[in-house]
Simulated scan of single mutants.
Amino acid sequence: MPATDRSVTEALHKRRSVRAFTGQPVDPALLKEIFAAAQRAPSGGNLQPWQVTVLTGEPWQAVKDEVAARIAMGREGQQPEYDIYPRELTEPWTDRRFGVGEALYASLGIPREDKRGRLARFMDNYRGFDAPVMLFLHCSRIMGPPQWSDMGMWLQSVMLLLVEHGLASCPQECWAMYGETVRRTLGLDDGQILFTGLAIGYADEGAAVNRWPVPRAPLGEVIDWQGF
């Protein structure tokens, strides 16, 4: 399949966390091409700490089934690999997190008081939003924050390359809430730690959940210019 968005700028503006996918399968040869290109992502000391498991079909369904069983156990079933958000998150980050969540549910027409409706929609996370492919990104537990940063650069490279080829994705750290179950189902030993999932497929362009605007902080909030 030919690339559709050749400009990095175009890919950056078009990329978003897609939460509704079509049932169209993804060509594994295309994924191999994308992953081969993503290997050019930088890493300190050229460690390339990222390790990846890519699933579709029955193996992907097995992960969903195993995690669903843990979810049914309530809080006792959770197996967090790490704190996804800081426990003492403050402004402006709390406002950004709250704001994007409210905008998401507003796009679905689910008001704040509809707790059941919001929970049902949240559970779509653990179905990968019906994406046909799930990528799990993990690494050796000996790796530290710099190597986790390297994994993020690899992941961003993959997401932009997916856009370039007409595909969509949604990074999902929520899978790390059931890290032990995911790792066991993938056949990974305890020497590995699960970082995130990445749902991959073709976006349902007509779905409202894929069309609401996602704001970004203005440059004045994040960049301090000195000496210019």
Results as ranks from 00 to 15, higher is better:
11 A>P: 13
15 R>I: 00
17 S>Q: 09
18 V>F: 08
19 R>C: 03
20 A>E: 06
23 G>T: 11
30 L>E: 15
33 E>W: 07
35 F>E: 12
35 F>H: 13
38 A>F: 07
42 P>A: 05
43 S>P: 07
45 G>E: 10
45 G>D: 02
49 P>C: 05
49 P>M: 13
50 W>M: 04
52 V>D: 05
54 V>Q: 04
60 W>C: 01
62 A>C: 01
63 V>I: 12
65 D>I: 06
67 V>D: 13
72 A>Q: 10
72 A>E: 13
74 G>M: 03
77 G>A: 02
79 Q>Y: 02
80 P>E: 01
83 D>Y: 12
84 I>N: 06
84 I>T: 10
88 E>S: 13
88 E>K: 13
90 T>C: 00
90 T>L: 09
91 E>L: 10
93 W>V: 01
94 T>Q: 14
95 D>Q: 14
96 R>H: 07
97 R>N: 08
98 F>L: 14
100 V>Q: 14
100 V>G: 02
101 G>Y: 04
104 L>H: 03
104 L>K: 01
104 L>Q: 06
107 S>G: 02
111 P>G: 14
115 K>M: 13
117 G>F: 09
117 G>W: 09
118 R>Y: 09
119 L>Y: 14
120 A>K: 09
120 A>R: 14
120 A>Y: 06
121 R>E: 13
123 M>W: 01
125 N>K: 06
125 N>G: 07
126 Y>S: 03
127 R>F: 00
127 R>Y: 05
128 G>P: 07
129 F>P: 09
130 D>A: 12
131 A>K: 11
135 L>Q: 05
135 L>F: 04
136 F>Q: 08
138 H>D: 12
140 S>N: 15
145 P>T: 03
145 P>R: 00
146 P>K: 05
147 Q>F: 08
148 W>H: 07
150 D>Q: 06
150 D>L: 00
152 G>K: 02
154 W>G: 04
155 L>P: 10
158 V>T: 07
161 L>M: 11
162 L>P: 08
164 E>Y: 01
165 H>W: 15
166 G>D: 12
167 L>W: 12
170 C>R: 06
171 P>N: 04
171 P>R: 05
176 A>D: 02
176 A>S: 15
177 M>K: 03
178 Y>M: 07
180 E>Q: 14
184 R>I: 03
190 D>V: 15
199 A>F: 02
200 I>L: 08
201 G>N: 02
205 E>C: 03
205 E>M: 12
209 V>C: 14
210 N>V: 00
216 R>V: 12
216 R>D: 07
216 R>G: 12
218 P>L: 04
222 V>C: 15
